[in-house]
């Protein structure tokens, strides 16, 4: 048995592809387990690695979370670092427990391939240690993203653990042609494979209102029933009322962030396609705004941060997939079936 190790950067679609592949392979009749050697904790309220929680539920894994994610590394992990060998031993032991009785183990990488390199627990080292087949996820921000991918592929090749292939994830529609026509051939020229190009899909990539709420906290004043709405864009409402409508109309399913005292902007936002209205500064809005939001069933969240801090916090939110989110889970499998050469992946690990 071989393992699949999914490497990538933060927000590159590791969880989505791991979910899709795991479910697809188990539907193909394999017993699949999930393992995440280095976990991380996101959000203000959470204490657990969300990927592990998700996969434990989806794959009905019996092991406790501490086994599925033996090690949780925060950004100041070195302050309390442990002996390398011991950590590696622990990871190995946990892995064996998880792998026991299964045909395949999908291993989720940490936020970046280099994380915990100080302890020799970076992705390439773990790939070697766990004898896994590495897969690299690419999120295109600009042409430099491809340079980064080639750099990682080169490094893995030098280490003697070549990447099985690359998957482009969350590719915006206007970049699909370029990915297919320019990026993919360049990778091929360097001798690296592309296993899939997955187009952007709001169902998987746009955070939900409640994910912002988890980070921001605050009070929900209206529209509580629609906290599951997707947020595809954010707009800051600091403009004059004459220009507000023009701006607000330009984006759909957006979160609008504005001061609690700007009832004009708030009401204008409620006339346009708005997923959530976030009022900052702890200023309670006029009751009429609350009533209108309720009428339109738009979540109205009052936060106590100023507008700048609110946006800072919101920018860190990425979409999490939850087991209960059937549409998203279904979409991960659909993506694998439609856009990824999953048979080749499977062949490499069985």
């Amino acid at each position: 048995m071989k393992n699949l190790y999914i490497m990538g950067t933060a927000g590159s679609g590791k969880t989505s592809v791991a979910t899709g592949l795991a479910l697809k392979f188990s539907r193909e009749g394999y017993r699949v387990a999930y393992f995440k050697p280095i976990g991380n904790v996101t959000g203000a309220f959470l204490r657990e690695d969300e990927d592990a929680v998700l996969m434990k539920q989806l794959l009905n894994m019996k092991q406790p979370l501490e086994t599925i994610v033996p090690y949780i590394a925060g950004p100041s992990y070195l302050s309390g670092y442990k002996n390398t060998c011991e950590s590696l031993k622990n990871i190995r032991k946990a892995y064996e427990t998880v792998a026991d009785g299964n045909d395949l183990v999908i291993i989720g990488g940490a936020n970046f391939p280099h994380i915990m390199g100080c302890l020799g627990l970076d992705a390439p080292s773990l790939v070697q240690e766990l004898e896994a087949v590495p897969l690299f996820m690419i999120k295109i921000n600009n042409d430099y993203s491809l340079d980064h991918a080639i750099f990682i592929n080169n490094y893995m090749k030098c280490k003697g653990i070549p990447v099985l292939g690359n998957i482009f994830h969350n590719v915006p529609r206007p970049l699909l042609a370029k990915t297919e026509g320019i990026y993919r051939p360049i990778l091929e020229e360097h001798g690296y494979h592309t296993l899939g190009i997955i187009p952007s899909n709001a169902v998987l990539t746009s955070p939900k209102v409640k994910e912002y709420y988890e980070v921001l906290g605050g009070e929900i004043l209206a529209g509580e029933e629609n906290m599951d709405r997707l947020v595809e864009d954010t707009v800051i409402g600091a403009m004059t009322i004459e220009s507000a409508l023009g701006y607000l109309r330009r984006s759909a399913n957006k979160a609008v962030i504005t001061g609690g005292d700007r009832s004009d902007v708030a009401l204008a936002a409620l006339e346009t396609s708005t997923s959530a209205l976030i009022l900052t500064g702890g200023l309670y809005p006029d009751v009429k705004v609350v009533a209108r939001a309720e009428e339109k069933r738009v979540p109205l969240i009052l936060v106590h941060y100023d507008t700048y801090s609110t946006i800072e916090k919101m920018s860190k939110v990425t979409r999490r997939i939850r087991a209960k989110d059937e549409a998203a889970v279904k979409m991960t499998v659909e993506n694998i079936e439609k856009h990824v050469d999953w048979r080749n992946v499977l062949r490499a690990i069985i």
Partner: peptide, 18 residues
Amino acid sequence: SQAGALAASSHTGALAGS
């Protein structure tokens, strides 16, 4: 006025239109 529109929108609870 800008401020008047703000007051009116608070008062009536509807975006008043330009």
